[in-house]
Nucleic acid binder design. Structure first.
Lengths: 144, 144
DNA sequence: TCGTGGTGCTTGCAGTTGCAAACTCGGTGA
DNA sequence: TCACCGAGTTTGCAACTGCAAGCACCACGA
């Protein structure tokens, strides 16, 4: 795919700028970028780097992530569930560990889907085996 | 975190890659970038665009935001370690499954803490053995 | 001693980013 | 009518990204 988002990225920036009631040159100055370049970005003629995006976000006093999402550089929400997003974002894990958790999680979901269309039923044959050290874990078995 | 910025980005990527036990070329292939360029990025000779960063993150199975933070493109105010919260909030899992995931996650973290003060260590001995559901899981452990 | 296949690194180049300078257009005052 | 000012835009260029091709090195087997 081309970059469908880029077009809207510029519009989004321009929109935000106009809502802030500041001129292109003003924003350019606040963001520390040149005004010609900002002009081109707003019109979708250039695809700004993340660094520039970051500066523009600061100039607009909005979150950089909002712009990254607009630019298609970040998924608005992680493609799958929040669990996967959280696992992926957890920098205290090794990639190997991450992969294990992801594999297990996905297999759980697949299993739940496969067993029947029903949501989470007993389906314990997987989780039945403690498998791992339970130290001071809070069972927290509140299933919905 | 107390991590420097762009300079450490390359090191961080290399570290993550080596922990995943994959070669530079492998990661380059998985990320869809050229291996010479990835080499330069890892050595801090080039500053990758957000798009490339995004692809590298996918190749490493880590969140793009983690890399953006490393690159100094995003302020690190992401509540990244919400794995437990996400797991607990996931209604598609059975409580058993939840418990398994939590156990594993806790053990991973404990292990990383115990092995040394450093966050992510090889620590493959846990992740290496799937331990779990061999139903439909694809461990996908594509290591060397 | 070769050849083969695996690392990672260097080089040269096409394409892009981002900027400085200069431009157009509309409004204001003498 | 001028000159001036500020809005956004166009142009030309240095600097950079990212890739293809190829290099250097090492381990292994014939």
């Amino acid at each position: 795919m081309e970059l469908p988002k880029v077009a809207s990225l510029g519009e989004y920036i321009r929109q935000q700028r106009q809502q802030a009631k500041i001129s292109l040159r003003q924003l350019a100055a606040q963001a520390g970028v040149s005004n010609p370049y900002l002009s081109q970005v707003e019109r979708g003629l250039r695809k700004p780097s993340a660094e520039i995006l970051n500066q523009i976000a600061k100039g607009l006093h909005i979150s950089a992530q909002a712009l990254y999402v607009q630019a298609g550089l970040i998924e608005d929400r992680e493609p799958h569930s929040d669990v996967l997003a959280a696992i992926r974002a957890d920098m205290t894990l090794t990639s190997r560990q991450r992969q294990v958790l992801i594999d297990i999680y996905e297999s759980f979901r697949k299993e739940n889907r496969a067993d029947s269309a029903q949501p989470p039923q007993p389906a314990a044959h997987l989780g039945d085996d403690p498998v791992l050290p339970r130290d001071g874990i809070t069972p927290d078995s509140k299933e919905g």
